[in-house]
């Protein structure tokens, strides 16, 4: 299965990654190779196997509704490239 150039651009857009023309060509090849590798799974006969979303034998893992202390704010913001007034500072987000 070969990805089209448009599909690569769409994936990059969803991931918010800017790609150069060379990179688009490069990733088109690389991503297609990964997909082809995964495609081997399609050849396995799964007709007798029920579909599942998990391979773990676990069900109903829940916790009681009890609050615990949160992190000190210095720790929360310690690795933030930029912060201001206790908030994470990020690039401008355009809305309406």
């Amino acid at each position: 299965m070969k990805l089209t150039r448009e599909e690569v651009e769409h994936i990059a857009e969803l991931a918010k990654i800017g790609l150069t023309e060379e990179e688009k060509a490069l990733f088109q090849e690389q991503l297609s190779a990964i997909l082809e590798y995964a495609e081997m799974l399609q050849r396995v006969d799964t007709s007798a196997i029920p579909p599942t979303a998990t391979v773990l034998p676990l069900r109903n893992v829940m916790r009681p509704d009890e609050p615990h202390p949160s992190l000190p704010r210095e720790d929360v913001l310690a690795n933030a490239p930029q912060s201001e007034d206790g908030c994470f500072r990020v690039k401008v987000i355009l809305e309406s």
Binding site: E84, G86, C87, F88, R89, V90, K91, V92, I93
Partner: peptide, 12 residues
């Protein structure tokens, strides 16, 4: 999110 004009602030 808080929009501050030239940047934005986030409270999680």
């Amino acid at each position: 999110l808080f929009h501050m004009g030239t940047y934005s602030l986030v409270d999680y």
